[in-house]
């Protein structure tokens, strides 16, 4: 990655298109034309999106890593900035800094089974890794996606999930905490699916993203299946103001989630994971 002249200065990118995903999530595609900004990213990285006069938020990139010049962000409206971003229309500008952070080690899974476990909006930062894995499908053993959401109406990228489910070279299990009558997938927490799928535990790379409580149970389930700790990767979330390791907000023990993460091999953060108020 190139270190730009002033890393705290956003670049303006226009909204190329926007799409409502669920009742509280939406996707915006930004055109990257600024020469000083990198048009490429690695799966799992994030950008800082600046809403004029309101603030800046770290948002993971959810698009295809091989489509350059576009930054796709899938966002849940839950704060002042994200609600404001939800109201922006196509053609309007957004300030962007990035891409920042570490990435999903998709190539680490070459020659192995790849197990992806996502919860809720956690599917968004994993989607670029899925795209990349599908683009290099022959390099992997099994490719498994386990995805859980609160309810059927919270399921993100449902059409895409159905397309993936139809593929013969990919296993996709969907589950929701609370189902309604026409839901014909699983019911229950996503981590319960881990013991039900068939993969070669010794030779599997697992990528996990979702609420911390879900990641905690996912790790327990993966370790029960004897997936090695250094084959488990997770994406962490913390308050961030600068994204370049200078504001101090995102510290997780000695780690800066913005520059050492957001994607960590589990064994590196195990001592700090699941500690209340760390």
């Amino acid at each position: 990655m190139i270190a730009y002249s002033n890393p705290m200065m956003p670049h303006l990118c226009r909204i190329n298109s926007r799409k409502k995903e669920t009742h509280d999530t939406f996707t915006i595609t930004l055109d990257v034309n600024d020469e000083e900004m990198s048009p490429v990213f690695r799966p799992g990285q994030f950008n800082m999106l600046y809403l004029y006069g309101v603030g800046e938020v770290p948002i993971s990139i959810s698009g295809h890593p091989q489509k350059t010049g576009k930054m796709v962000h899938t966002i849940r409206s839950c704060g002042t900035v994200t609600r404001g971003l939800a109201r922006l229309k196509s053609g309007m500008p957004v300030g962007v800094r990035g891409p920042f952070g570490s990435s999903w080690p998709v190539t680490h899974a070459y020659g192995r089974d790849l197990l992806i476990v996502a919860g809720g909006i956690g599917l968004a930062p994993l989607r670029p890794a899925i795209y990349q894995a599908l683009a290099h499908r022959k390099h992997f053993g099994k490719l498994i996606l386990l995805y859980g959401a609160r309810s059927p109406e919270d399921v993100l990228f449902y059409k895409e999930l159905q397309t993936w489910q139809k593929r013969s070279d990919m296993t996709v299990y969907l589950t929701v905490d609370h189902a309604i009558s026409d839901w014909d997938h699983h019911v229950g927490v996503v981590t319960n699916l881990i013991p039900r799928v068939n993969f070669d535990a010794d030779d599997t790379v697992a990528m996990v993203c979702g609420p911390e409580i879900m990641m905690r149970y996912a790790i327990m389930a993966l370790r029960n299946q004897e997936v090695p700790e250094n084959h488990i990767y997770l994406s962490m979330e913390r308050n961030m103001k600068c994204a370049i390791g200078l504001c101090g907000h995102c510290q997780l023990g000695p780690k800066f989630v913005c520059k050492d993460g957001p994607v960590f091999p589990y064994h590196r953060i195990a001592p700090y994971f699941n500690k209340r108020e760390i």
């Binding site: 800046e56 504001c247 101090g248």
Partner: peptide, 14 residues
């Protein structure tokens, strides 16, 4: 100690 936050301020007209 070097921790910092950022604040966004607008004028009344925006």
């Amino acid at each position: 100690c070097f921790c910092a936050t950022v604040e966004d301020v607008t004028d009344l007209t925006g």
